[in-house]
C-alpha cells in the first residue's frame, strides 16, 4: 500500500512563493496517484479565504491551484479551527471545502499518516 503524507501548509498566500510551492508538492502527489492530505495551519489558513484580490499585489491567483486539488485526487483537506479563530475568521466562509479540525483531531491526523511534512 502506498505511504501517505500529511502536508502542513503554514504560509500566507501572498508572503512569497512558499504557499504555492507547498501546494505543488500536493499536486505532484496527486499526479502520481499517491495519498496526500493537506492541513492548513497558522497563516496557511489565509489561503482558504474567499474573494481574494491578488491583482492588487501584482500576484498570480493561488486559488486556481487550490481549486485544482480535487481534480488531482487531493480531497482530504483540513483547516485548524483555532488558527481561524485567533485571526478573527472563525465563521468566515472558505473558498474550498475543508474539514475544520480541533487540536485533538490534528494529533489524530499526524498519527494516521506515514509522513508529516511542514512547509
Amino acid at each position: 500500500m502506498a505511504k501517505s503524507v500529511l502536508l502542513i501548509s503554514r504560509q500566507a498566500p501572498w508572503a512569497g512563493i512558499g504557499a504555492a510551492e507547498a501546494l505543488d508538492i500536493a499536486l505532484a502527489a496527486g499526479a502520481f496517484d499517491l495519498p496526500l492530505s493537506i492541513l492548513f495551519m497558522d497563516d496557511g489558513v489565509l489561503q482558504l479565504l474567499d474573494q481574494q484580490q491578488p491583482q492588487a499585489l501584482e500576484q498570480k491567483d493561488l486559488s486556481a491551484n487550490l481549486q485544482a486539488l480535487p481534480m488531482f485526487g487531493i480531497e482530504q483537506l483540513y483547516v485548524a479551527q483555532h488558527c481561524l479563530t485567533v485571526r478573527g475568521l472563525a465563521d468566515n466562509p472558505l473558498a474550498l471545502t475543508a474539514e475544520r479540525v480541533d487540536d485533538q483531531r490534528i494529533q489524530q491526523l499526524i498519527r494516521q499518516h506515514d509522513y508529516v511534512m511542514t512547509l
Partner: peptide, 15 residues
Amino acid sequence: GLGQLHDALQQADRC
C-alpha cells in the same frame, strides 16, 4: 521534478 520526492518517500521509512 517533485515526483522524485514522492518516489523517495515510497521507498523510505522516514523523511
